[in-house]
Amino acid sequence: MSKIHVNTTVNGDEVDFLCDPRETLLDCLRDKLQLTGSKEGCGTGDCGACSVVLDGRLVCACLVLGVEAEGKTVDTVEGIAKGQDLHPLQEKFIKYAALQCGICTPGILVATKNLLERSPNPTETEVRYWLAGNLCRCTGYDKIIRAIMDTAAEMREAG
């Protein structure tokens, strides 16, 4: 099958790749752009480990075709830190031990950053339902939720 040339913007950089029309955005990010921070946990949109932001909208990269990224912007976990400065969410996740194995962490960070941009003062219930599409098998979510609530409070204070 002939391949399609896709031009897109990932984490602010203009990039291009050739992909089979059957390949997902996740396949393209991981295999063609070597951005392996986004993970495939299920391939069916149930686990959220591949969460990325496509033109401002939180999506599962495994449910988007690579060719759909044409002309759009994609934000992944690799773009959350600015240079060597971690985002407050990243710092709090380490501080609170909000990860054990760390496989769900990229997706949860991408999803949560998107939430806080929309809703800087979420309730615990809002956070829990926003993350209902991001499975974590290790932590029972307790420390994840605490890290997020603390980050949100700190970011509000910092204005």
């Binding site: 392996t36 921070g37 959350i80 971690l86 380490i94 990860l99 960070l109």
Partner: peptide, 23 residues
């Protein structure tokens, strides 16, 4: 005590290499 884990930065930035991340 409760220090930060040594592999924390790797795991919040997407740098950590899991099973499927090697070529």
């Amino acid at each position: 005590t409760r220090p930060e884990r040594p592999d924390g930065v790797d795991k919040v930035t997407g740098r950590a290499k899991f099973g499927a991340d090697m070529t």
